[in-house]
């Protein structure tokens, strides 16, 4: 009894350690690749950890016009993103917490995180904050139907909206899992990922020009420990979205047995895949410029078309993503 309880508990702790510990490094890799591609040296790989540590010890300042929303929003957002971590199959299957939630819950948790930060952006009464808040919620609203269609596209062949069930089917089928509808669904998901995580060409996390900001504009007023929570949370939102991409698009390597060796191997594989994905996005980011805001709607419409196309194609040729 204790054995059957212990292994999932350990796996859960491992997942959290992996995501919490690794996400700043992944961010650093992304920035480094981007810098190198553009001919710069880029910050050292430990820089995000140093930043977090610095912010944690820094004095806090709140606007006198701000309320408790500003004070609690970073923690709520952080908690919502943390709660989403076990929804993704990282390196063991079945997922340690079992069927406690699915990808629709993931959409809800991402929504919760976005909602409180968008409110905090309005809280102080800053003009830039309001602008960022409006834009972020606008993108979020348009991304939500695309996310649902993507979930349906990935989920319908497995008959489940749980990432664990979808990945398990992929692992079991092996290479037969890959087919044209899957490809369309992956394209849709990648477009969605760029919007959800606020990467170029949708939003530029490295910008210093307020008028072009989306996410940055919302958190301009933050500093100290609150900023640490926000930035760390943002790091593992990126990790969650990439982890999900890997689990849905290329789940091979996730361990389905309990032996320590295989699980260790699976951890290595997933870390490798995550690094690879971040390198790819870093390369992409170095090459594209930010689009104007309203073209994001085109991008998302395109993603919706791909997702719906995946569903339709699966129907026509059978099988499915």
């Amino acid at each position: 009894m204790s054995g059957s309880f212990l292994a999932p508990a350990l796996a859960l702790v491992g997942e959290y350690l992996l995501v919490l510990g690794l996400s700043p490094l992944l961010l650093a890799v992304l920035r480094r690749v981007k810098a190198r591609t553009q001919g710069r040296i880029g910050p050292p790989l430990l820089q995000p950890y140093r930043d977090l540590w610095k912010w944690m010890g820094k004095d806090g300042i709140y606007a006198s016009s701000a309320s408790w929303i500003t004070r609690y929003a970073p923690a709520i957002s952080f908690a919502a993103l943390l709660a989403a971590v076990p929804l993704v199959p990282w390196f063991v299957l079945p997922t340690p917490l079992g069927p406690f939630g699915d990808l629709i819950l993931l959409v809800g948790l991402l929504g919760l995180s976005r909602f409180v930060i968008a409110l905090a952006a309005l809280d102080g009464g800053s003009t830039f904050g309001g602008m960022g808040s409006s834009r972020e919620m606008w993108m979020g609203a348009l991304a939500e139907p695309v996310f649902l269609l993507v979930i349906f596209a990935f989920g319908s062949p497995a008959g489940s909206t749980q990432a664990g069930a979808i990945a398990a089917r992929g692992v079991a089928l092996g290479i037969a899992y890959a087919n044209p509808p899957l490809l369309l669904a992956i394209v849709a998901y990648v477009l969605l990922l760029l919007v959800e995580t606020g990467r170029l060409p949708v939003d530029n996390p490295a910008t210093h020009l307020e008028l072009t900001m989306v996410h940055e504009a919302m958190v301009l007023e933050y500093t100290g420990r609150d900023l640490a929570l926000i930035e760390w949370g943002r790091g593992f939102k990126l990790a969650i979205m990439f982890g999900l991409l890997i689990a849905l698009a290329a789940p091979w390597g996730i361990s389905t047995s309990g032996t320590l060796l295989l699980v260790g191997l699976a951890v290595g594989i997933v870390v490798g895949k995550l690094l690879g994905a971040h390198v790819l996005v870093g390369r992409l980011e170095a090459r594209v410029a930010k689009w104007r805001l309203f073209r994001v709607a085109d991008l998302l419409t395109l993603a919706a078309v791909f997702a719906f196309g995946s569903l339709a194609l699966a129907y026509v040729i059978g099988g499915g993503a």
Partner: peptide, 9 residues
């Protein structure tokens, strides 16, 4: 922790 007027860049 301190309270100050809004920064707003």
């Amino acid at each position: 922790v301190d309270e100050r007027p809004l920064w707003d860049c």
